[in-house]
Structures are given as C-alpha cells and as structure tokens.
Design a protein around this nucleic acid. Structure first.
Length: 563
RNA sequence: GCGCUCGUAGCUCAGUCGGACAGAGCAUCGGUUUCCGGUACCGAAGGCCGGGGGUUCGAAUCCUCCCGAGCGCACCA
C-alpha cells in the first residue's frame, strides 16, 4: 500500500512542474485515527520549494490524487491542518489484507527486502574466562534477535561467536587453574595473600597469578583435572592441559546458558587459528605496506592519527605479542573472504573507541568497511535496592546470566533486554527482579495469545465450527477495524526493526497489537453471536494469534497456550 | 582535557525522515463481571521533553553553549 501510494503521489507531483524529481515523499502512520491511515507532509515541504501556500498545494495534490487512485484501495483523500494530506484505506483493502494474513499463517511477516543477501551477525563473543554476565546477556539477546529479524526480512544469516584464545587473558586463566590444581595435589603448599582493588584480601596458593581469576569455577575445573589425572600434571611445564580443560569447561557452561535463552550459534571463530594461518602477520605486512605503521620504543604502532584520532595505537607490544586489534582486523578479513554482503558486530559501549581502528584498517587494506555495521549497546547497571552491585569478572562476585534466568525465567530475561533501545543504559534492580517480572509486559503479550487459544478451545467445546471462507466484510465494529489495521502493520514493523537494527520496536508494536486485541475482545463477543459474524470474528482472532505468535517467535519467546 | 551514548510523568522507558493537542507500562485514585480467561477493559491525576541561545512555516527531534550521568581516551579484551 505504501509503495502504491508513493508511486501515485510521485505521478501527481510530476504533473505539478518545478518539483525536483528526487524530491522525497514521506508517508507516515498518523498518531490519531481521525488523521487517516497514512499521511504525507509533502505539500508542507513543497511550500518553500514552489514558493506557494502549502494548503493550496495540498488541495491541488489531493484533487489529482483522488482522480487517479483505485477506489478499491483508497477510500478518501483529505487535506487537513496546515497542509497534511490524509489518506484513508478502503475497507476491501483491509479485508483482502486480512485474508492474505490468514493464508500466510506462520510465514506472515516475512519479506524479501534483503533479497537473499548473505549476512553475518557476530555476537556474544565473550572470551571463555568465566560464566556469562548479565551484560553479555544483553549482547547475546540483541545479536540473536537482530539475526532473526534479518532472517525474516530476507537475508541469509549466519550467527557467529568469536573469541580470543591466544592472548594474555587465557594464559592467566590457565595459570589460575594450575595454581588451584597444585594446591589440591600438594595439600601443604604455601599460600600468599592478594590485595584486591577494593582493598579486600584473599588467600591463594603460592603460584597463583597476581591478576588471576578467583571464581569458584576455577577450583572446580582444577578438581576435575585432579580427579582425572591425580598429581601427574605437576611434572609438566606446559599450561596447555590447564587452558584446554578450562576452555572446554567454561565453553560448555556458556553454551548451556545460551541454550536456555534459545540461542544457538552457527559457527565459532577463534583467534589462535588466525595466528596459525599467518593471517595476523599478513595484516601487519599489509598495513606496513600501506605506510600506516612505524616502530617506536620496541613496539609497532598504527598511525590512527591518520584517521583523525588524537593518538596512535599499538599493534604489537614490546613483548612481540599483538594487541587484540590486530587479530580483530584479520578476523574481519575472513568475513570478507567468506563473501558476506553485510557484517554486523554487536559491541558493548566500552568498545566504541576501538572499533573505528578496525574499520579504518580494513578500509586501508582495500576492503569495503561500509559493509560492516556496528551495533553499540550501553551497559547494564545492576542495583540491589539503592546499592549498586559491584561487578568484577576477576573475583566472579557478579550476578551471572544464569542467576538472572533462574530468577525471572528465560522469556522475561530476553524481553527485558529487548524492550529498550540499545542506546539506553539499563538499570536493573535485583531486589525487585521477581516482583517486576510479574509486571513485565511480556506477560501481557502472552496472555493475549493464551486467551485466543482458550477461545479456540471453547469453540470446540461448544461445537461451534467455523470455516475458512468467512465473510470478513461483516467486521465493521470500530474495534475490529482498528485491530485489522494493527495486524497489517506487522511486516513493516519487522522491516523497520531490521533496518534500524532496533529490536525494541518489535515489543513496542506487539503491545499495540495486544491492546487492540483486548479492546476487540472486550467489545465484540465471538462465540454465541450470529454464525456468520462469529465465523468472521473467529478468523480475526486467529489472525491476531498469528501475529502474536510470529512476533513472539521473532523475539525468541514462547507463545504459551495457557498461563 | 578530548571523544561516544544519554537526560522526556513519582519510577522504568517509547516517541519513525523535523509535523497535527508529547505517549505507554508500573505506582496512585475511581469505575466495569448473569457472557468466550478480570493476568482484562474504561476513566482521572500526573510534563518548563535537563537549562540557555539559534535554524525552520513548524523542534523532544537539527546546530551551538552550559549543567548532570554512564562509558571510553592501555604495550587489557
């Protein structure tokens, strides 16, 4: 409909003369029903271009539009206010749309806007040094839902998880496990005292790294190694068995957490392979050839000042190890080599200063960095009552994503992260978590869905049989028409959310649908009225169920038959 | 000091490309049930859209300055 109207308006503008051919025609859904179903401010914006009264321009456009528009689709074209042109849909258009919705069923809402382009969404990407935090949860749920939105809008989507297994972090992790293992294998081993940032102290085994990981899970991993190997590993110098055991155990944990949230990755990419395949070296060579590096103080620097930054950035440390940026660039090159049209990275706000380096480097190396789209999300702040909850990955005294899921459930957890714009800082009061979960709008959506299921059950119970070729034109009640219009917005709502990488638009939309359904339900009896009308209303209820179900599915939420 | 993201009702947040009287949920107060799920529906109250200046026919939205919050500005990731 939008496309149709856009084309008709364009044709009308061509008859006016003096309108630039690239003049943009903006169509919007007005807030108020009395302003019609679609409105355009074209005449207002043409006022200055044509140097004429907007109201007069609007009258001219409206008149010519009425002449050429198909009455089966458009009921009326009116000029209102300072020069808005309000268009009202014909009822037949609504009924045709509703019939189409019902025919599409589970596929309703899908579109081919992406035209089969290949998209890679990289998300989670937490390094396997400990359980996922609530912050990782936001990343995971955002990435997963953006991936689903792209899938529904016609992209061929791959979900990928990248992790750094080559750097210092993993070495410290392995050393931490090893120290705990040594303590288990040597009960009288000396201990030492570590003083942490907050001036608290903790007793650790002698060989424990200064900045080691203190979580209980480290000891668990050490214990399972001890159970399996006894004291044998004491004789080996290598950290490899410790690192491998830690990585395996922690990854199993992470994947289990993700599975609880309905998240399954298609692929994992690791940093070590990039080193092994010489890709990191190749990046350094490439950047050096491009004249973007220099050596100073024993390190290799990237001239980020050439990209407008106020300082240069280290690519290779004096130790000879690259900083994470270098393999990151190499990793992104593998994405290009795998021929993705669109690459989306989901990153926390703390990365915002770093990712431009990667994009600029890619650009300098001849890759089209415009195909990489970074979605930044703000941090999740946890509070308990009025007290902020201190989080430290190192101490593992944080609230894990598992804790949160256990407390409020997977649906609420997902919805909580999805209902707000990625740009907003999330405040989460743990003390009120359970109470709040009962007020969470996700239940409002699920309740509406369950209610429709209940009506279907009731119909069967009382022996009311409704068939598919209902006379939908019997749906004339204000609440019925409003619900139909709401339901027909679904595909556009998904496209908008996908295009803007803004999952929160979907919950917002679905709340409108649930409200429209509840109002319809409240005003219009279904079972028990005249059979033809009852049949038509039943079909409308099923259409609402379809949209709610599909919408919840896109969000990765369950659509329960009863609550 | 510099950069990024923000600041909208008591609280948590929407607000499309600059458009019509600024919205929702929760909390508060009031109303609705012989009938398909009242976990619902209807209504009331609640706003200097952080503040000043500017652009525009029109600004919560764009520009600028100021105030406030979070996050960066590592040879950590």
């Amino acid at each position: 409909m939008r496309d149709y109207l856009q084309a008709q308006l364009r044709a009308v503008l061509d008859t006016l003369g003096d309108v630039p051919p690239d003049f943009e025609i903006a169509l919007e859904t007005p807030d108020r029903p009395e302003h019609g179903d679609l409105a355009t401010n074209t005449a207002l914006r043409l006022g200055s271009v044509l140097d004429d009264n907007p109201r007069a321009i609007a009258e001219t456009i409206a008149e010519r539009l009425r002449e050429r528009v198909d009455p089966a689709r458009i009921q009326s074209v009116e000029v209102a206010g300072p020069g808005f042109i309000n268009v009202r849909f014909a009822q037949d258009y609504l009924f045709d749309g509703l019939a189409d919705l019902l025919a599409q069923g589970d596929a309703y809402g899908r579109s081919d806007a992406g035209d089969g382009q290949r998209a890679l969404v990289e998300y989670v990407s937490a390094n396997p040094t400990g359980p996922l935090t609530v912050g990782h949860g936001r990343n995971a749920v955002l990435g997963d839902t953006i991936a689903t939105l792209l899938d529904w809008t016609g992209y061929d989507v791959t979900r990928e998880y990248y992790y750094n297994d080559a750097g210092r972090q993993m070495r410290v992790l392995a050393q931490s496990v090893r120290a705990r293992y040594e303590a288990l294998a040597t009960p009288d081993l000396d201990t030492k005292t570590l003083t942490l940032d907050d001036d608290t102290t903790v007793e650790v085994p002698e060989g424990f790294p200064e900045d080691g990981y203190l979580g209980e899970y480290i000891t668990d991993i050490a214990r399972s190694l001890y159970d399996e190997h006894g004291a044998k590993l004491l004789t080996t110098e290598s950290l490899t068995p410790f690192q491998e055991a830690a990585e395996e155990a922690i990854f199993a944990d992470i994947e289990a957490t993700l599975a609880q949230l309905n998240i399954e990755m298609d692929a994992f990419a690791d940093e070590q392979s990039l080193h092994d395949e010489g890709r990191v070296e190749a990046v350094l060579d490439g950047l050096t050839e491009a004249g973007l590096t220099y050596e100073e103080d024993g390190a290799l620097w990237l001239k980020t000042t050439a990209f407008g930054k106020d300082q240069d950035t280290v690519l290779v440390k004096t130790s000879g190890e690259p900083t994470y940026r270098t393999p990151d660039i190499a990793y992104h090159i593998t994405k290009f080599e795998r021929d993705y049209d669109l690459m989306i990275d989901i990153l926390g706000a703390d990365h915002h200063a770093a990712y431009p380096d990667v994009l600029n480097a890619l650009d300098a190396l001849g890759y089209d960095a415009d195909r990489v789209d970074v979605v930044l999300y703000q941090f999740v702040t946890l509070v308990r009552g009025d007290e902020p909850v201190k989080m430290s990955t190192r101490r593992a005294n944080y609230v894990t994503l598992d804790d949160l899921i256990e407390k409020v459930g997977a649906d609420v957890t997902r919805f909580f992260f999805l209902m707000r714009s990625p740009d907003t800082h999330l405040n989460f009061d743990l003390e009120l978590a359970e109470e709040e979960s009962e007020k969470n709008p996700v239940f409002y959506l699920q309740y509406a869905h369950a209610r429709i299921c209940s009506v279907v059950d009731k119909a069967e119970e009382v022996g009311f049989s409704y068939d598919e070729d209902a006379d939908l034109s019997l749906l004339t009640h204000e609440a019925e028409i409003a619900l139909i219009k709401e339901l027909l917005r679904f595909p556009k709502a998904l496209r908008d959310a996908a295009d803007a990488r803004a999952p929160h638009l979907v919950p917002n939309y679905l709340e409108d649908v649930a409200t429209a359904f509840s109002q319809f339900y409240d005003n219009c009896q279904i079972i028990g009225v005249d059979d033809d009308l009852a049949t038509a209303r039943m079909q409308l209820a099923l259409a609402a169920k379809t949209v709610l179900k599909n919408g919840l599915t896109v969000l990765g939420l369950s659509a329960p038959r009863q609550m």
